[in-house]
């Protein structure tokens, strides 16, 4: 079953009076349980594509379908609801909430997804176990290493079992050994939870865990 599909997606920005085509007819699909790596140099349009697939930006033209729901660019008020229901994000900078513990970060994400009370607390207690953070669940982000923060970020992204996981350079701030472990964990959890995982990366080691590798250059997919 398709978690995500993009058909002929383009994105044009205006820089002063000049139009800039950042994406030019990108089409891709992501199945549930599939791991896809998206590689490309800086300025190739990776982050813009990720923003569009993640329903943060709308395309200038083209079609995006997330977990069976077509994204309507004219109804931007629906975008937060689609993100809430179907998309989990893992960011390069982790973006954990600094005043919340690891478990509370997961619980907060569940609250945003409409899961509250004992159910959210139970899930928030279970999630750190799944990412090997049982003994660190009560720690604040400032007391965690980079690899540990990224594990918490993965647990937070998977809270609520979204259909799609989007990761923006998840290993960029990690050493190679920690990065490899995080990637393995990512793959294992995505497969287990049945989420489609799209990793945007410069890191060639991501290829080892990906079912498919896509390359983007100058706003077009080349492979």
């Amino acid at each position: 079953m398709q978690a995500l599909a993009a058909e002929e997606v383009t994105k044009r920005f205006r820089e002063g009076c000049d139009p800039v085509d950042v994406l030019r007819g990108v089409s891709l699909s992501l199945e549930r349980g599939e791991v896809v790596a998206l590689e490309g140099p800086s300025g190739s349009g990776k982050t813009t594509l990720l923003s569009i697939l993640g329903c943060i930006l709308t395309p200038t033209s083209g079609r995006v379908v997330v977990d069976g729901e077509a994204v309507d660019p004219a109804r931007t008020e629906r975008l937060p609801a689609i993100r809430r229901r179907a998309i989990g994000f893992v960011f390069q900078q982790y973006n954990l909430f600094p005043a919340l513990t690891a478990a509370e970060n997961v619980e907060f994400a569940l609250n945003i997804r409409g899961v509250r009370g004992p159910g959210a607390r139970t899930e928030a207690t279970r999630a750190p176990d799944a990412v090997g953070m049982t003994d660190r669940a009560g720690f604040l982000p400032r007391d965690l290493s980079g690899g540990q923060k990224q594990r918490v970020a993965i647990a937070r992204a998977l809270a609520g079992r979204p259909a799609v996981l989007l990761a923006d350079e998840p290993t960029a701030n990690l050493d190679s050994r920690t990065g490899s472990r995080v990637l393995e964990l990512f793959r294992e959890l995505a497969k287990r939870e049945g989420s489609g995982l799209l990793l945007v990366t410069h890191d060639p080691s991501v290829r080892t865990i990906a079912d498919r590798v896509l390359a983007i250059r100058d706003g077009r997919l080349t492979a």
Partner: peptide, 16 residues
């Protein structure tokens, strides 16, 4: 601001 941006990115509405 970054935390509020993260809240929005992970699906939080303005009401949240």
């Amino acid at each position: 601001l970054k935390e509020y941006g993260t809240m929005k990115a992970i699906g939080g509405s303005n009401a949240d």
